[in-house]
Amino acid sequence: MLRHLRISPAARPVSLPGLRRAAVALPAYLLMLVAVGIILVPLLWMLTASLKTRQEIYTLPISWWPEAFRWENYEQAWTAVPFARFFINSLITTAVGSGLELINGVLTAYALVFLPFPRKNLVFLVVIAALMVPFQVTIIPNYVLVADLGWVNTYQGIIIPGAAVAFGTFLMRQQFLSLPREVIEAARIDGAGHLRILWSIVLPMSRPALVTFALISIVAKWNEYLWPLLVTNDADRMTLPVGLTQLQHSEGSSEWGVVMAGAVMVITPVLLVFLWARRHIVEGLTAGLVKG
């Protein structure tokens, strides 16, 4: 009769290898929670501070939740500076700048992978070398060129110097290298040209990497501060990050609730874009790791 008795899974003792794996994984999970906390706590403070009065912000000990939601901070932030103009400027520079980055990155990567031309590896080496050059190194030459062209306080002055990025070319090249060559060759046999192959075959098969590239470009363009600050001195062409500085100057160093409300309005669009594209990010960043 004893042979028919079975021990329930809940009553079985935990195996020693399982305990070891849990002991090894526990520090990693704790570090991950610490990292998430370091990222989320400032965002939570910014969100709650945007709904507080000045007295609540300066109250000690810190009060994390406002006593009454002060929505007037958002209205004041929107009207204290031409926030609508800043928003339109950021939309234009981000949409056009990211579009140019995508076009240049995709076409350059396609040429490096599928087009035969001499010194292809040397060209790719130059692209990789450009990844090592900090953007700050090129600021002075870019500004001198933009000033000579008369592009100060213009959209093209903000957009054109950042219309190409080496990282996007590298990312899309690695993705294109991982595509099955049989499909590309079959399309060529059927008479498809390069643009048809790129649009109908290569880009649909590379959607995760393309979405990742677009997301990185959009976030970078939307949050760019230093270059728009240097190349604009007129509110009609200032972008949101520069406008946020103008808001801080107009409100002084005490009305942090209004400034935090402006900051929330600045980061909300990119957070929404990230939530839309999050499922493609990991797959896109790991594309092409096997083949190189």
Rank of each mutant, 00 (worst) to 15 (best):
97 G>M: 04
52 K>E: 00
15 S>T: 05
142 N>I: 04
259 V>E: 08
43 L>K: 02
288 G>I: 10
7 I>T: 12
177 L>I: 04
119 R>D: 03
76 Q>W: 11
193 G>S: 13
268 T>Q: 00
58 Y>K: 13
43 L>E: 08
134 P>L: 12
122 L>D: 09
59 T>C: 14
248 Q>I: 02
146 V>R: 03
159 I>K: 00
25 A>D: 10
77 A>E: 13
169 T>G: 02
173 R>D: 00
117 F>Y: 15
240 L>H: 03
42 P>L: 07
279 R>N: 12
229 L>R: 03
228 P>Y: 13
129 A>R: 08
13 P>R: 15
161 P>V: 06
285 L>P: 15
50 S>P: 15
9 P>M: 09
174 Q>N: 14
242 V>Q: 07
254 S>R: 10
249 H>S: 15
243 G>L: 02
234 D>T: 01
264 V>E: 01
38 I>G: 10
276 W>N: 14
239 T>R: 13
233 N>A: 04
134 P>C: 08
28 A>R: 09
223 N>Q: 04
289 L>F: 14
59 T>Y: 15
271 L>E: 05
243 G>S: 00
174 Q>F: 01
272 L>G: 15
80 A>S: 15
169 T>R: 00
28 A>G: 08
246 Q>P: 02
35 A>K: 07
40 L>W: 10
261 A>C: 02
57 I>C: 01
283 E>A: 13
257 G>R: 00
123 V>A: 15
92 I>K: 04
158 I>G: 03
283 E>K: 14
195 L>G: 01
53 T>Y: 04
236 D>G: 05
176 F>C: 04
271 L>T: 05
182 E>V: 13
194 H>G: 06
195 L>F: 07
147 A>V: 00
168 G>L: 13
264 V>Q: 02
86 F>H: 01
282 V>N: 15
237 R>P: 01
197 I>C: 15
185 E>H: 12
278 R>F: 09
96 V>I: 13
15 S>G: 07
261 A>V: 08
239 T>L: 13
62 I>M: 14
125 L>C: 08
160 I>D: 01
216 I>E: 12
256 W>Y: 05
67 E>T: 09
230 L>V: 14
117 F>W: 13
36 V>P: 02
12 R>A: 14
120 K>G: 13
92 I>V: 15
20 R>T: 05
82 P>F: 09
238 M>Q: 09
90 S>F: 09
71 W>P: 03
44 L>A: 11
197 I>W: 08
115 L>E: 10
274 F>V: 03
287 A>V: 07
47 L>S: 12
253 S>V: 01
41 V>A: 15
199 W>V: 07
20 R>P: 02
55 Q>D: 11
262 G>D: 06
57 I>G: 03
233 N>K: 02
140 I>R: 03
100 L>P: 03
271 L>P: 06
28 A>C: 02
66 P>V: 01
105 G>D: 14
166 A>S: 10
290 V>N: 13
89 N>W: 00
53 T>W: 03
156 Q>R: 11
219 V>R: 03
236 D>W: 02
241 P>T: 09
70 R>L: 04
167 F>A: 14
190 D>A: 03
129 A>Q: 02
157 G>T: 11
50 S>W: 12
196 R>F: 12
115 L>S: 10
259 V>I: 10
104 N>D: 11
125 L>P: 05
172 M>L: 15
30 L>H: 12
158 I>W: 09
47 L>P: 06
